[in-house]
């Protein structure tokens, strides 16, 4: 849905082109997904990647952390994982005679929550609360998480055995959900020839530092969204509410998420204004996990959202 364009529309240079290009050398044939993941982080949102094991979810998270210079930590979710395994525990130190807090893996700038739907809802919610509030409360004490703070959660498709699917209210905390999908033939051949990429990610050098990110995020929020563009976002949101294919429409919060994701997309394209292409590009990633099909009540398939786009005229 995105069209690379040779147009001179952009104002500022595109500082992230290098990041996109380097990431593309680690994850073959997934330019669109990398771009969406970056846009999600720039819009200060958390990302959910849903796919089968072995599709490069973890590699993507790892690569982004390296390139953006973010302090990285990975939590493998299992069914016996406890909330304290994420947030941290206080231990008694015999020498000083005091309790000392040992921060859990959530105290990092980019947290990869791997296979989040393998853990129990209680453990899931410990992470989701941290995502929402940017802080961790443990044993009566509140500790702020580092800034910036991103969570990239991966999840296996819900019908796999031994999973606790995230409820809709929790899914709403992720700005986007993307699927990796199989690589195309050429990319897969290249992957097979190079013999796996995860190790190469460890050797990547940071292209920007984590301190620069907040300033970039401020630039993103300042991107201009004109009246007709806001009309378009509104028309799309309203269309989801009337479309009989969906059990219920997008919430106002989802509308805001759509606009901020579109802003980030525009910024990645080097533009100072949002255009309808940006909205169409991010819409499936923002909307699919927030909508439910009317029949089965599953997350809406991307085809439904594409069809919806084709039913709404651009103002």
């Amino acid at each position: 849905m995105h069209h690379r364009t040779p147009s001179p529309l952009g104002g500022p240079p595109r500082p992230f082109d290098q990041i996109l290009q380097q990431a593309g050398q680690i994850i073959y044939g997934k330019q669109q997904e990398i771009r969406l993941a970056l846009a999600c982080l720039l819009a200060n949102g958390h990302l959910l990647i849903e796919d089968l094991p072995g599709m490069g979810k973890t590699t993507l998270a790892h690569t982004l952390a390296r390139l953006l210079g973010l302090q990285f930590s990975r939590i493998q979710f299992t069914s016996d994982l406890l909330p304290a395994d994420i947030t941290g525990v206080s231990i008694f130190e015999r020498n000083s005679g005091e309790f000392r807090f040992l921060p859990g893996p959530v105290f990092a700038q980019l947290v990869l929550a791997d296979e989040i739907n393998r853990a129990t809802p209680k453990t899931q919610s410990a992470l989701l609360e941290a995502m929402e509030e940017g802080q961790v409360t443990s044993e009566g004490q509140t500790r702020p998480l580092p800034r910036p703070f991103f969570v990239i959660a991966t999840q296996n498709p819900a019908h796999q055995i031994g999973t606790f699917p995230l409820p809709e209210s929790q899914l709403d905390r992720f700005l986007m959900r993307i699927e990796m999908g199989y690589p195309d033939r050429a990319a897969e051949r290249e992957l097979l020839a190079s013999g796996g990429q995860r190790n190469r990610a460890d050797n990547l050098a940071a292209l920007i530092s984590a301190d620069q990110l907040p300033a970039i995020q401020r630039q993103v929020t300042a991107i201009h969204a004109a009246g007709p563009l806001i009309d378009y976002v509104q028309a799309l949101v309203e269309a989801t509410r009337q479309d009989p294919a969906f059990r219920h429409g997008l919430s106002p919060r989802a509308g805001l998420a759509l606009l901020s994701a579109a802003r980030a997309w525009a910024w990645l394209d080097g533009r100072d204004m949002v255009i309808p292409d940006d909205v169409q590009a991010v819409l499936p990633a923002v909307a699919c996990h927030r909508l439910r099909t009317a029949r089965q009540g599953e997350a809406a398939p991307i085809e439904d959202v594409r069809r919806l786009v084709q039913s709404v005229a651009i103002p």
């Binding site: 255009i275 309808p276 005229a313 651009i314």
Partner: peptide, 12 residues
Amino acid sequence: CAPWETPLALAA
């Protein structure tokens, strides 16, 4: 041009 088609898509 379809009503939902973006200007950039049309240009392509």
